[in-house]
Each structure stands twice: as C-alpha cells, then as structure tokens.
C-alpha cells in the first residue's frame, strides 16, 4: 500500500509539473505579485486546459500524500518525489524543449541523491 501511494505521488507530481509549466508558459510571464496580477493569473489559469489537467494531477498526488502521511511518517513521504526529479528533468528537456546541459543534469542528480540520503 505504501509503495503504491509512493508511485502515485511520483507519477502525478511529474505530470502535474510538466503540464503546469506548459500551461503557464502559454499564459505569459507573471510580472509582479500584486493581488490584481495574481487574480488575472488565476482567471486565465482556470480556463487553461494544461493548468486544469496539471492541478488535477497534483490534487491526486496531494490526496495520495495525505494518505501516506497518515500511515507513515514524513521521512517516508518526502523521498516519494525523489524519483521524479530525473524523470521531470528528462521531460523538461525533450517535451518542454528546455536547454538542459551538464550543470542542470548534475543539479538534478545531486538533488535526487541527496533526497534519498535524507532518509537515513
């Protein structure tokens, strides 16, 4: 049960981040954090199919995380996302077309390894 939840969290987290990035890049850059700017961002996001799908995926991931936190402690829950770091970087490069070179690969790898080590 725990590992099923971990898999759901990792997969939905990855889908959510990639879809949200694709959707938000279509909306244009948020220039400041004034309430009206954020309200404008939300009004556009709620009719943006990528962001809707991305938030739906993150909601599934969130409820799976709540379930996991209720049966295991947070140290078990946190590394659930470790696996998704490398997968997300891969998708960022090949699906979102980002310029991922040695430094970013090294950064993602260090973070994924570090997150695993935090368990001990």
């Amino acid at each position: 049960m725990k590992w099923l939840l971990v898999a759901i969290i990792a997969i939905c987290n990855t889908l959510g981040d990639v879809l949200n990035t694709a959707g938000m890049k279509r909306q244009g850059e948020v220039q400041d954090l004034r309430p009206q700017t954020l309200a404008w961002m939300v009004r556009r996001a709620v009719v943006n199919p990528y962001v809707i799908a991305g938030i739906a995926a993150m909601a599934v991931s969130f409820f799976a995380l709540l379930s996991l936190l209720s049966i295991a402690n947070v140290s078990f829950a946190v590394p659930a996302t470790a696996a998704s770091y490398l997968l997300e970087t891969l998708l960022a490069k090949y699906v979102l077309g980002e310029d991922v070179r040695t430094r970013r690969w090294a950064a993602a790898t260090l973070v994924a390894a570090g997150v695993v080590l935090l368990q001990f």
């Binding site: 981040d17 850059e29 997300e88």
Partner: peptide
C-alpha cells in the same frame, strides 16, 4: 514562478 522560469531550473 513556472510562468517565468524553466522547470529544469525550478526543480533543483
């Protein structure tokens, strides 16, 4: 943040 920056930057 994702509207302004790369996902492969934001994640790490």
């Amino acid at each position: 943040l994702l509207s302004r920056a790369d996902l492969s930057f934001v994640l790490p």
